[in-house]
């Protein structure tokens, strides 16, 4: 009873900066522990960059033999690729602990997160920061600037503000997909396969939706919404004359997807009853 009252009191005193401050404290501990494995950081960053460079080389090789992909030029494809890399960075940087969720759930360690007076999802996700994602951020930004420059796109306050909104909503979609995939571990045993299965789809986000037929355009817009990771938001810059209605809706859709995945995650966690030990 007393503790309940105290908790209520504390909640009243948690200002707007309570969660950011907690987040900084938890992340500092994680970064400290990661500093012990400096070689791991360098090797992982090189591995990450190698993946990104291989994607770049693939486009370069295709455009050595072909003039365009369905009317999309080399620099337009690079724009989509860079945009998708940037949109995929937050999930890598801040939501990597989702990959460990199933191990925590099966071993019973997940119980420890349930006893803190914090939002369960917040506390779990804030535990790790995956700094190798920073390499992708740099590579993605560099490629985007390169493509931006060659396409002669305007550099203005408006276009930069739009870019931030577009990238944020694109990131939310990917985060939502991985939240939902990770949450399956509360119901099924081999959720690792579900995560790998859905994570593979991010590689297809860099292609324009116009290459697919109508059936797959619907699948990739609703069922597995990878169209929102690069294609729909990029239309503002690449095909300003025929922007899809989905482009304007993408921030709303992203927030809805994210909220849905959060609810699913919490629902699974609430039903978790430990392993009994």
């Amino acid at each position: 009873m007393i503790s309940e009252q105290r908790e209520k009191k504390e909640k009243l005193h948690r200002g707007a900066f309570y969660y950011p401050r907690i987040y900084r404290m938890i992340i500092t501990q994680d970064i400290k522990s990661k500093m012990h494995y400096r070689a791991d950081f360098y090797i992982s960053t090189i591995g990450m960059l190698a993946t990104n460079i291989a994607g770049f080389i693939s486009f370069w090789l295709i455009f050595q033999s072909f003039p365009s992909i369905n009317g999309w030029t080399y620099y337009e494809m690079l724009f989509l690729y860079a945009f998708s890399l940037l949109a995929l960075t937050p999930v890598q940087l801040f939501f990597d602990n989702n990959w460990a969720l199933r191990f925590n759930v099966y071993s019973g360690d997940f119980v420890k997160y349930c006893f803190r007076p914090l939002n369960l999802f917040f506390y779990y996700i804030s535990e790790t920061i995956d700094i190798k994602g920073a390499g992708q951020l740099v590579f993605g930004a560099g490629t985007l600037v390169y493509a931006w420059h060659h396409l002669g796109l305007e550099v203005s306050v408006r276009s930069m503000a739009l870019l931030i909104v577009a990238l944020t909503s694109a990131s939310l979609v990917m985060i939502a997909m991985m939240n939902a995939a990770a949450a399956t571990c509360f119901w099924v045993i081999n959720s690792g396969t579900v995560m790998v299965f859905l994570f593979r789809f991010k590689d297809y986000a860099k292609y324009p939706m116009t290459i697919y037929n109508i059936g797959f355009q619907i699948v990739f817009s609703i069922l597995i919404p990878i169209g929102f990771i690069a294609y729909y938001p990029s239309l503002i810059y690449l095909r300003a004359q025929d922007v899809s209605i989905l482009t304007y809706l993408s921030p709303v859709i992203a927030v809805l997807f994210y909220y849905g995945s959060y609810k699913l995650w919490i629902r699974g966690a609430m039903k978790y009853s430990g392993t009994g030990s």
């Binding site: 494995y37 070689a39 791991d40 992982s44 960053t45 591995g47 990450m48 190698a50 291989a54």
Partner: peptide, 24 residues
């Protein structure tokens, strides 16, 4: 030697998939 499983595995996969012709 390195204990960096993710990074090493990633590099291996990228190199093999690209240089073996499995991607292009």
């Amino acid at each position: 030697y390195s204990q960096s499983i993710w990074g090493i595995n990633m590099m291996k996969e990228v190199i093999i998939l690209l240089l073996s012709g499995a991607t292009i």
